[in-house]
């Protein structure tokens, strides 16, 4: 029997949360930026070491101020995925501040940090920028090329099951 787990995608607008989700669930990608308003939810069943888990993924409208997230969107989450745009520093310069807010309000929910759109940046420059701000993402991904997308969601699912 499959268990269902709620995963919430968080981050500034335009960082590629919806694109990551579509790449993961539908294996599609569009260059067009379509704003998400409110919340858009998709699900996908994955198998982790023979165990089935249905990920209910909430793609929440982006914001740079995490204190503005509606609590109802985040309630019951088994994991947060914090997505930033590797090509726009403004989307990760306040990462620490936002993480502090999450750990204060949701201390038991693990957060995975993802740098998306790595296809648009020079890897060395990005590493230098991240190091200088002491940011250590769990994954660097590209919804466009599919790089690390499957892996990151599977990794999240595995951790969710482990914590269950």
């Amino acid at each position: 029997m499959s268990v269902s787990k709620k995963i919430v995608l968080l981050g500034h607008f335009g960082v590629g949360k919806s694109s990551l989700l579509r790449r993961f669930v539908e294996d599609t990608f569009s260059e067009n930026y379509i704003v998400t308003i409110g919340v858009h939810i998709m699900k996908k069943e994955v198998s982790i070491a023979g165990e089935q888990v249905t990920l209910i993924i909430w793609d929440v409208e982006g914001t740079d101020d995490f204190t503005k997230y509606r609590p109802s969107y985040l309630m019951g989450a088994a994991s947060f995925i914090y997505v930033f745009d590797a090509s726009r520093e403004v989307t990760y310069s306040d990462l620490k501040y936002n993480l502090e807010h999450l750990s204060e309000k949701y201390p038991h929910v693990p957060v995975h940090i993802i740098g998306n759109k790595v296809d648009l940046v020079d890897a060395n420059i990005l590493q230098e920028n991240l190091l200088s701000q002491n940011i250590k993402p769990d994954y660097l991904s590209s919804a466009k090329t599919g790089e690390n997308v499957e892996q990151l969601f599977e990794n999240v699912a595995a951790q969710v099951l482990k914590n269950d």
């Binding site: 308003i37 409110g38 919340v39 858009h40 939810i41 409208e61 509606r70 109802s72 969107y73 309630m75 019951g76």
Partner: peptide, 14 residues
């Protein structure tokens, strides 16, 4: 059932 409040609001759900 796990939430403390009986009533909850979810705005703008697609």
């Amino acid at each position: 059932l796990e939430e403390p409040l009986d009533e909850n609001y979810f705005y703008c759900v697609q």
